[in-house]
Write a protein that binds this DNA or RNA. Sequence first.
RNA 1: GCCCGAGUGGUGGAAUUGGUAGACACGCUAGACUUAGGAUCUAGUGCGCAAGCGUGGAGGUUCAAGUCCUCUCUCGGGCACCA
Length: 915
Amino acid sequence: MSYEHQKIEKYWQNYWKDHKTFEVTDDSDKPKYYVLDMFPYPSGAGLHVGHPLGYIASDIITRYKRLCGFNVLHPMGYDSFGLPAEQYAIKTGKHPSIATQENVTRYREQLENLGLSFDWSREVKTSDPSYYKHTQWIFLKLFNSWYDLDLDKAREIKELISEFENSGNSNIKSTHHCEVSFTHVQWKNFNEKEKEDILQCYRLAYRAQTSVNWCPELGTVLANDEVKEGFSVRGSHPVFQKSMMQWCLRITAYAKRLLEGLDNINWSDSLKEMQRNWIGRSIGAEIDFNIENSDESIKVFTTRADTIFGATFMVLAPESDYVEAIVTADQKQAVNEYLEKTQKRSERERIAEVKKVSGVFSGAYCVNPFTQTKIPIWIADYVLGGYGTGAIMAVPAHDSRDYSFAKHFNLPIISIIKGADVSESSLDAKSGTLVNSGFLDGLDVKVAIKVAIEEVEKRSLGKSTTNYKLRDAIFSRQRYWGEPFPIYFEDGIPRALAEDKLPLELPEVDKYLPTQDGEPPLARATFWKTDEGHPLEYSTMPGFAGSSAYFLRYMDPNNTESLVSKKANEYWRDVDLYVGGVEHATGHLLYSRCWNMFLYDLGYICEEEPFKRLVNQGMIQGRSNFVYRVKGTNKFVSLGLIDNYDTMQVHVDVNIVKNDILDVEAFKSWMPEYKDAEFILEGSDYKCGYAQEKMSKSKYNVVNPDKICNEYGADTLRLYEMFLGPIEQSKPWNTNGIEGVYRFIQKYWKLIETELVDSEPTQDELKVLHTAIKKIKADLEVLSLNTSVSAFMICVNDLTKLKCKNKSILKDLTILLSPFTPHLCEEVWKKMGMKESISFASFPKLNEAYLVESNYSYPISVNGKMKFLLDLPIDLGKDDIEKVVMENEKVKQLIGDKTVRKLIIVPKKIVNLVL
RNA sequence: GCCCGAGUGGUGGAAUUGGUAGACACGCUAGACUUAGGAUCUAGUGCGCAAGCGUGGAGGUUCAAGUCCUCUCUCGGGCACCA
C-alpha cells in the first residue's frame, strides 16, 4: 500500500493539537532551549514557499533538541501592526483589525499544515491591546530613564532629577543633547516647562525638532533603516528631509555596547559586519582651529590627526552653527545663495549628485595650530552637519573628497607622505612615512596618528574622541494602525500616562486618513484625551516597536501583570537559536538588542544579549514570467519577435505559464482587460520572457505551499526545502528535484511496511545506521540540513540493499528522521506498535565501534619518504597525533639521533596512492 | 569608492577544513517489466578517441591545494560625501 500523505498528515496534526503535544512550561527539570522564528507580518497574500524555509529548519532543530532531552520553547505569533492593513482600511473603510484577523487565521492554518511544532498557547499579536500594553509600558520606561555614562547603564529619571536638585548637571556624565549647564539653585528656579525641556535632553525616549525622512506619499516620517537611496523601503516612494517635532529613541546611548556585544554572540560574520558598519565607530580626535581676528575657534573631527600639516583649508557643513558667525560681509550674499540652493535639494538629489563638487568661500580664515599658517574656511555640502562637529580640516593630498574639492576651487595641495604622487589623485591609504610634518617626520602613519593626538592633548588643542554614525531612531509615525503613545500634554508639556492606565487602546475613527489640517488620523477622534481633558499624543509607534521585545513576551505570554515574570525569564533567559531574514540586520535586530539591554539595565531581565545564535535563511526567489504588449494596443507579441515592435513588458501569472509557454485561453480569462487580447505567435506558441525576482504578489510569481502539500505532502515539502541547498543561501524556487525526495519517502515507507523482525542487527546494518547517526547529528549541530537529507537517502538505499527488516535498526532510523518528516515517523511509530509519541523518545546513541576504523590509522613518513604504518587511537586531533607519533618506540628507532626536519602523517585511505 | 561573501559537471549542490574532487538528487542514455503511457527496477553518466586534462584565470607554498598565500577577472550582498 502506498503512503497516503493527506490522510496521515491531517491525522497527526489533529493528534498534536488535541494532545497539546508541544506546549511547554517553565516548571521543568530539563535544561531549556529556545528556538525562535522571526514572526511574520500577516499579509493578505498568505504564505509563499519562501516563508517556510526558516520555519522548517527551526522546527527540525526544535524537534531534534526535544529528542536530546531539552525542554524547548518554540513559539509563533504575528507582527500585526503595519502599513498594508492600514492602506487596505483606507480603501475599504473597514477597520484594519478585521483584515488582520482574517490573514492571521489563514497564516495559522497554513503553518499547521506544514506540521510545525509551535506551542500555540503562547501565540502573540502585536496589535492586540493585551500585548501592546507591554510595548507601551516599555516606552514609558524609556521615557522615564536616562543613560549614566559613569555606570554605563540606563537609570531612572527620578534619580537624575534628584542629582539636579542636589548639584545641578555639571557632574553628570550622560548621553544627552543638553547645551546648558546649571546649578541646583538654578534648577529649582526653573519653571515646569523649562525643567521638562532639559529633561527631554536626557530621556531615552524624547521629543525633538529634528530633520526627518518625510515621505509625502505615505504621509509619514520614516526611520533611517526604512529609507534606501532616497526612497521608502515600503512602496519605493521619494523621501525628503523635513524638520519636524518627533519622538526619538536615544539608541546612540547604547552604540558602544551594541558594537562590543557583537563579539560575544554567534551570528554570521556578514550580519555582524552590517551592524558594525551601521553603528560606524571611528576613533579620532577633535582639534580646535582658532579663527583669525577672533577669540572663537572651530572644532573639527578627524581620524587622521597625523595629516594636520597637510591641512590647507577648512570646510563647514551648510547646517553648521559656525557659518553665521564667521561669514564676512562681502561673502554674505554668495553664502546665502549657496545655503538656499543646498536646502532645496531633496535627499535623493543630494545622493545623485555626490560626484558634483559645490561650495562657497566664507571669507574667513583660521589658523592651523601646528603650521601657524592661515587657511581659508569654506562651506560645502559634502560635509555633513550631523556627523562629528560638522566641520573638517581638509587634507586634499590624502583624502579624495578634499582632493576633488581643492582641484575644483584651485586650493593648495601639500603631501605629507614620503614619495606620494598627488598630481593626479590623493593618497588615502593609512600607510607610509611622514614628511613635511615637523615633529611627526619619519614616523609611520599608524604611529603618527597616536603621537599627533598626544601632542594635541598636551598643547590643549583638543582631545581624542570616538564618533558613531548611528543616529537616534525616529520613533513616531503619523499613522493609525500602530501603538498609541501613552503620553498626554499638559500646557504643551509631554507627560507620561500612569502605568495602571495601560493599555491605552486605539480609538475608533471615521476615516484612516490624516485630518484636513494635516494632523495624524488619531486627531479625528475628538475624545482622544485623558479623563482630565488633556490631549493625548496623535502619532503612533513605528513597526519595530512591537517586535523589539516580543521574544521576551513569549516566555510568559499570559501574564497580565507584567511583560514577563522573573521566574519565567530566569528559566528561559534568552533565545538559543533565532532564524530569520537578513533584511532586519540594521532594523529589528538592532532595536531588539537595544531594548533588551535597556530592560537588562533596569533589572527586569537577566540576559544582556537576546539572541545567542542567529541564522539568516536565504530568500527563495520567484521566477517571474512576462508577456509583451504592443504599446497602446491589446496585442501581445511572443518573446522572439519583440524586436520588431514597440512593446512594454507586463508580468503574467506564472500559474498560467508552463515551460515559458503561455496558456493563451487562461490568459484571456485571467483579467477582464485581456478578454479580447490578440496574440502574435512564434509558430503555434506564445513564448514568455522570464526573470528571477523576489516572490511577490505584484509580480504574479508567488508559488504557495498549499499546492505542494496537497500533491506531495508536508513531509516531502519539508525535506525538499531543506534539500534545495544550504539554508543561508538564496535560491530560486523550482520543483525539479522534488520527485527525488518524494521517491525517498516512498522507499522508506516500503522498507518499514514489510514484516519486521525482532532480532540482533547485523554488523553491516549497524554500520549503516551509525554512520548515519554520526553524520546527521553533526549536520544538525551546524544546521547543514541539506547534507543530512542526503545522508538519509544513502542510509535508506543501503538498508534496502541489505534487505534490512530489523526492527531496532528501523526504529532508530525513524527517530533520527522524525525531526524532518514528523507525520511519517509518527505513523511508522504507531505501526510498530509503540505507544508513546516519538516526540518524547530520545535521540539514538552513536556507537563509534560500528564505524569504519581504518580512517584512523596513519602511515608515517620522514622527510618526504613513506616509512611504515602506525595504528593510532580513534579521534585524535592533529596535534595529538603528532605527539603520539613522536613518542612511539618504532618512530624513535627509525629516527635515531637524527633531528627530524619534517614528519608527515597521512590518513590510511590514501596510502596506496602515496606509496 | 569602501567593506563582506561566492565562483566546482547539463542542473541543484557534496567534499570529515590540506588528504582518492564531483557524495546525494535532478536530468540524460541504455536495458527489464508493460498493448501503450505512467510508475518501478538494473546499469551508465565531469571532459577527452587516447595519453591525459580538469574546481573563474595567472603565479606561489607543500610529499599533497577546490581548500592556504599573492595578483587578477566575474557575480551577489551591504554601506555610501561618516572626515
